[in-house]
Design a protein around this nucleic acid. Structure first.
Lengths: 134, 134
DNA sequence: CCGTATCCTCCACGATACTG
DNA sequence: CAGTATCGTGGAGGATACGG
């Protein structure tokens, strides 16, 4: 899932396989490890500062958090506001566009809550049947 | 996004970061490059054979298609039926559980269709503002 | 406090060749 | 037809150190 490590050539080319599957287009952007976690946090807690986010998303490195926030900002999903104080205070919040994503995302969350147990069960059954674990 | 290249130790450990974010749990399974495309195809066209899928998902390698289908089968989302004829005929279809995923997935698709243009626009605006491209 | 710069590791994905 | 086996690679993601 391509995030933008080299931002410079991110606009250059789109893989042909993406054309015609909108859900893939979207997941190519937010399907990475941290994007939806960030969107979730900003959706629930509202405006947050960098370090605040970093603490709540335990496990994220500074690099990845910055990178994720930049990508979301670039795509118009997150608004970044710098308050020129000393020390600097930076606040992140969802844009209106970002808020419209919460619905679909909640759809995924709901499905996961309702059906993930079945998935886990199916997985174990499969492993027993095919003889992993035993 | 971990798919199962080495199927053997796939059950062994779960990253701690996943706990408590159901949408991430889900995306860790179907957020890979081909899963939702396969689910989409099987959802729309119904029962399909291996080569049929391979043709419709143009660009997928045999290895990746097999791997994706196996993972989906293991998770109880896809049913694989082998017809012992000569030559062998294998058919894939969504399970009832697999069908329940279509709703949430359509949610993503709808969002993408409605808002991806805004995302693209925001992206260009950002690039101009920060001085890529020019 | 809020990042950037650098280096490194690991594995998802692809290409190719072969099989029941 | 429907796969398996093997090898190679790009780049996502982490650790660490430094900068405004």
């Amino acid at each position: 899932m391509r995030t933008v490590e080299t931002v410079t050539d991110a606009t250059s080319s789109w893989d042909p396989y993406e054309q015609g599957c909108p859900s893939r287009d979207l997941l190519d952007r937010i399907g990475d490890k941290w994007s939806i976690l960030v969107l979730g946090e900003l959706g629930e807690h509202g405006t947050s500062r960098f370090t605040e986010l970093r603490k709540r998303l335990s496990g994220v490195s500074e690099k990845m958090l910055t990178q994720t926030l930049r990508a979301l900002e670039r795509d118009g999903l997150v608004l970044r506001t710098v308050h020129p104080e000393v020390p600097v205070r930076v606040e992140y919040e969802l844009t209106p566009l970002g808020h419209t994503l919460r619905g679909p995302l909640r759809g995924l969350t709901q499905w996961s809550l309702q059906h993930m147990a079945e998935v886990l069960a199916a997985r174990e059954a499969y492993d027993v049947r095919t003889g992993q674990t035993g």
